[in-house]
């Protein structure tokens, strides 16, 4: 289960109280702007794509330019999960646990063919992999490739930032 932060609860209460008189959309917009520009991804690699994710964070591509370079080793401190690599059937429950441990609001990027649909490891009768992350958790942005270049991951990240700034989240129409 996700975690509803005290700040969110306060906001909910405030919004309910102030609803007849005022809209707190502005506050939410400012919050979203902050969230979009300070994403903290989880240090979490699964396979090949993780190397390109590291490349995106390293010297040439430098994810810090987009405010997303603070990789956190603990899910409790992260708000972005970049699924980079093949999800085996043995690993899928672990990933779901990690996702549930991340505090809301949180977002997920599926990087590479494996996390989108099983990618090159999918064939009739396969027994080892989970065919895509969306079987067990929500995904905001898909970045196709095998593996995607760091530029592609950055493009995906910018798309996610756009989405956050527009205030869209899961569980709501828009």
């Amino acid at each position: 289960m996700g975690v509803v932060t005290p700040a969110d609860r306060e906001l909910d209460a405030l919004a309910a109280e102030a609803a007849p008189f005022a809209r707190l959309a502005m506050v939410e917009d400012v919050l979203n702007l902050a969230r979009a520009n300070s994403l903290w991804p989880l240090t979490f690699g699964l396979a090949c794509c993780a190397i390109e994710m590291m490349a995106a964070g390293a010297s040439r591509y430098d994810l810090d330019r987009f405010g997303a370079g603070v990789f956190r080793p603990s899910p409790r401190q992260a708000d972005l999960m970049i699924l980079a690599g093949t999800i085996s059937r043995k690993m899928a429950p672990v990933i779901r646990t990690l996702w549930d441990q991340m505090p809301a609001p949180k977002w997920a990027i599926s990087m590479g063919g494996c996390t989108i649909s099983g990618g090159p490891f999918k064939y009739p009768g396969e027994y080892a992999i989970s065919e895509g992350a969306e079987k067990f958790m929500p995904i905001d942005v898909h970045v196709p490739g095998c593996p995607p270049r760091p530029e592609a991951l950055i493009a995906g990240l910018l798309k996610l930032e756009e989405k956050i700034k527009r205030g869209r989240r899961f569980g709501r129409a828009g």
Binding site: M1, T5, A25, R89, A104, K135
Partner: peptide, 28 residues
């Protein structure tokens, strides 16, 4: 061996995530 039996999938994983619980409602 041709394909794994259907029961080898963990059904709890394929269930959709809890709706608004994980994501507090936005204020619009």
């Amino acid at each position: 061996f041709t394909a794994p039996p259907a029961s080898s999938y963990d059904d709890s994983l394929t269930a959709p995530p809890p709706p608004d619980d994980a994501h507090p409602p936005a204020h619009h």
